[in-house]
């Protein structure tokens, strides 16, 4: 299981639109993969764009939410 932090900053706020929205550490850089069913997803607002809105535009499956 890997951690996926919502860090925002991508061109789209959609959950699955861009790896740019996802990081591997709190407040870190984007570029991690969009979370999958084996990932824990964390929204903690850290970083300059970590509080950006997130929009579920398709079903997303994660391990921990």
């Amino acid at each position: 299981m890997a951690d996926r932090y919502w860090v925002g900053g991508g061109g789209s706020t959609a959950w699955n639109a861009s790896p740019s929205n996802w990081g591997t550490v709190s407040g870190g850089a984007g570029g991690a993969s969009v979370p999958t069913s084996s990932d824990a997803v964390i929204f903690d607002g850290a970083g300059s764009t970590g509080n950006q809105q997130m929009t579920m535009v398709a079903t997303g499956t994660v391990y921990h939410f």
Partner: peptide
């Protein structure tokens, strides 16, 4: 997990499937 640090808008117009624990931030 959504911690209390997240102050953005969580817009869940679609389904999110959690294969384990779920924590909503205050």
């Amino acid at each position: 997990m959504i911690t209390s640090g997240y102050t953005g808008i969580f817009n869940h117009g679609q389904t999110i499937v959690a294969n384990g624990n779920v924590t909503l931030g205050a």
